[in-house]
């Protein structure tokens, strides 16, 4: 048993295409507890099983085995009670009726969640005001920007004022301004001010690091580590990271012969390749590394920094958060 908490997941399994050659163990014996008022993160690459787990907790998917309790209610025996106590927010834009306006959307979802008619109107006004959408009340959703749609999706999730929120990749596809708004809102308004219990899944390391009190690393359906972001970073055997920003082609195998370099992570972004090596002695390996990189790429910068959650994830799983 995992103990008591607002969300208690105990040994759940979910296998798709069971017994077939392309069988997928999407969730493979996961257990954890989320306490009341906690902002808990599930961090893992695409395909790690995060969304499957969220679907199991929100009663959209029936696990093969194990138990899940949400707000004290069992997902198998009391699914309607579970649904009354949760709000599910997903990334992407298609969770609203695009041909309806924000008020019509919220009124419909209020009815689905059994919000009394007499308080629905004031609840809608409050939420649209909170999201800064009061001037868009009669505009069809299809005319709103992606960020505004996600704000409205947040309002939809909050229409019945649930104590527990399941937030799945909430900033996916959003521009930096709206992504920042959503992150701030989740942390400051929902978690700190309204004391909501939040399970957030993301494959953005910064998002998990910035928002979550505790983080579970999820990879291939399993939880690889679970702790506070600080403790996870402190758990790294090597306390420094050598980072090289360059343009060109880098392969992990190129650096496998370097002694003193632990896990190696190569990622790409903004037209650059980023090589990160965990090490205790960056000054000793630096010369060899630069030589190897120069064979295939043009170096733009070199710096020594501290491990991030991504480095911990690579160290533990051998996979990158950007994999999948």
């Amino acid at each position: 048993m995992v103990g008591s908490g607002e969300i208690v997941v105990d040994g759940i399994h979910k296998v798709f295409k069971k017994g077939k050659p392309d069988e997928v163990r999407a969730v493979d014996g996961i257990s954890f507890t989320i306490n009341k008022g906690e902002l808990f993160g599930l961090l893992g690459p695409n395909g790690a099983g995060k969304t499957t787990l969220i679907k199991c907790i929100s009663t959209l998917l029936i696990p093969d085995s194990g138990s899940v309790k949400v707000g004290g209610y069992d997902i198998y025996r009391e699914p309607l009670d579970v649904r009354r106590h949760i709000g599910v927010l997903t990334g992407g834009e298609r969770s609203l009726y695009w041909k309806l306006n924000p008020v019509e959307n919220l009124r419909y979802f209020a009815a689905l969640y059994g919000v009394p008619r007499k308080i629905t109107k004031e609840r809608i006004e409050y939420l649209l005001d909170l999201m800064g959408l009061t001037d868009k009340t009669r505009v069809r959703v299809e005319k709103l920007s992606s960020g505004m749609k996600q704000k409205l999706s947040l309002a939809r999730v909050l229409i019945h004022d649930p104590p527990i929120l399941l937030v799945d990749e909430p900033t996916l596809g959003l521009d930096p301004y709206f992504a920042r708004f959503i992150r701030d809102f989740v942390k400051n308004e929902l978690n700190r001010k309204l004391n909501k219990t939040i399970l957030l899944t993301t494959h953005y390391m910064d998002e998990a690091d910035d928002l979550c009190e505790r983080i579970a690393f999820m990879n291939r359906g399993k939880i690889e580590a679970l702790d506070t972001p600080e403790r996870l970073k402190q758990s790294m055997p090597q306390k420094q990271v050598l980072e090289i920003k360059c343009q060109g082609t880098l392969e992990r195998e190129m650096f496998s012969s370097i002694e003193g370099a632990a896990s190696i992570n190569i990622s790409h972004g903004d037209g650059f390749a980023y090589l990160r090596l965990n090490t205790d002695n960056p000054e000793i390996i630096l010369g060899n590394i630069i030589e190897l990189v120069r064979e295939n790429a043009k170096i733009y910068s070199v710096r020594v920094t501290v491990p991030t959650l991504e480095d911990v994830f690579v160290h533990l799983t051998g996979a990158s958060l950007k994999d999948g």
Binding site: K55, S58, T59, L60, L80, D81, R83, R84, I86, V88, T90, G92, E93, R94, S95, L96, Y97, W98, F109, A111, L112, Y113, G114, R156
Partner: peptide, 13 residues
């Protein structure tokens, strides 16, 4: 098609 099915079926209605 609208993308709303799961949101409907995760409600208590």
């Amino acid at each position: 098609y609208y993308g709303t099915l799961e949101h409907i079926l995760s409600s208590p209605a």
